[in-house]
Nucleic acid binder design. Structure first.
Lengths: 243, 243
DNA sequence: GCCCGCCCGACTGTCTGACATACTGGGCCG
DNA sequence: CGGCCCAGTATGTCAGACAGTCGGGCGGGC
């Protein structure tokens, strides 16, 4: 061990210069999740080269990465396309997410420090005030989504299981993607708030069972709403254009 | 080869010529899971080029893929390394896997066809007879692992949620990887058998709750055993060499 | 007039070679 | 003896090239 043992490990320099490849990955991921690249759209390497300014090799590595993340599908000899989620796939994703958030909630209630519980409550408060804000509807929804992201950060950090976080991230991304086809009912904010309140309340009471249950209920409700928008579409395909 | 339209759809040609990249990915993945590439080992691109015979571009795409699968980590400017699982990471993985298999078992009990249940039972029977076999210990263990893989195939197919399968695959791979450091107690086969029996029995009884519980118990037991081997090692690192 | 088969353009899959940059280890100098 | 500098090593990224495949359009045959 060369590392001079004093209190090393906490003073790492933040590695400012991210590899180009990762920057591109982030940019593309954002573009997909923002629907600037829409589900079903082909990702032609040459176009991406022009748009991003990096070389083909880099682009291809990025595409592999996004493929593994489940955001793009690759058709052999045809290349990458932005994933289109089937209704069934979306339902399956929600099912897993239900379990996962339930687990996270239970663990949070069992293991988190009082500090973390307090922090979680604070995030919920912020969420409430974001809801109260009188911006335009669009504005408010965006704000709430952002705040909710931070809520989830605390939530998944506090449960003490890092694997949950990384898996949840992937699920979350794809679920978000699903809203492409639905786009329908964006706001059921009040309901969301009370569901989350229930989760945090159970956590504050240090009641793991209740927390798990509440978290599951929350995702199930979200699933109902989310899937509803897909119902109108065909049985199991995801035909975005031409009827 | 102009597929004459008679009863097409069932006679797909199995796409024998997989993209080179995927073959290489498979080979490397196998090598990692077989510990021919051991945890902590550096994966130097030039070496891999020599060993696999493909070009650097291809190798790099493969490494990205494996990175995303969680089998290798990349240290910036230093390259890829076969992952070394921390005791905590392993524990976290088991926690998630517990939930996941519990969910799968519940869904299986709820949704699978009688046919599928029967098939599952058959796999368990095969597992039993593999256990009875009087091969060398090593031989038997290998056989049981193979059979168990097939059991899981049926199990995860029958639960009807494809997302579970893909996530479980990833977890499974990394958990297997963990045995690198432990290597300790490979066989607790009898215990395993009875636990699985319990799961399938509950499924046959179409009792989702019991099935979920039994499946969770199974993974928890496996986790205890699996993690035990890691205990002897240092707190949270995974120092494979020199103490 | 319609259908079949051929051909062409568009892309991907893969390879080669090259260059800048960052890390490592070791020898040299003060 | 300790710190500095340097060359070797490996990654990060780019440019260009070429074969193979897929799809669609065009033209000829029936």
């Amino acid at each position: 061990m060369s590392t001079p043992e004093s209190d090393v490990g906490s003073l790492r320099v933040g590695r400012v210069a991210a590899p180009l490849r990762e920057q591109v990955t982030d940019v593309l991921r954002e573009a997909i999740l923002d629907f600037r690249l829409r589900p079903g759209e082909r990702l032609v390497e040459r176009d991406l080269i022009e748009k991003t300014g990096v070389s083909r090799a880099t682009i291809r590595e990025v595409l592999r990465q996004l493929t593994a993340e489940g955001l793009v599908t690759v058709i052999p000899q045809r290349g990458a396309v932005v994933v289109e989620l089937t209704r069934k796939e979306a339902a399956d994703l929600y099912e897993v997410r239900t379990m996962l958030e339930g687990l996270a909630a239970r663990l949070f209630a069992e293991r988190a420090s009082d500090e973390q519980v307090k922090e979680l409550r604070e995030q919920v408060d912020v969420l409430h005030s974001a809801f109260e804000e009188r911006d335009s509807a669009d504005q408010r929804i965006q704000t709430m989504l952002d705040v909710k992201d931070r809520y989830y950060d605390v939530f998944l950090a506090g449960c003490g299981n890092d694997q949950i976080r990384s898996i949840h991230e992937g699920l979350q991304a794809r679920v978000r993607l699903m809203r492409a086809t639905s786009l329908g009912q964006p706001d059921r904010p009040a309901q969301t708030l009370s569901e989350i309140d229930a989760v945090v309340a159970a956590i504050e009471a240090r009641d793991p069972e209740a927390a798990e249950k509440a978290a599951q209920t929350h995702v199930e409700r979200a699933a109902e709403q989310g899937l509803e928008g897909l119902m109108q579409h065909s049985e199991d395909g995801a035909p975005s254009s031409a009827s």
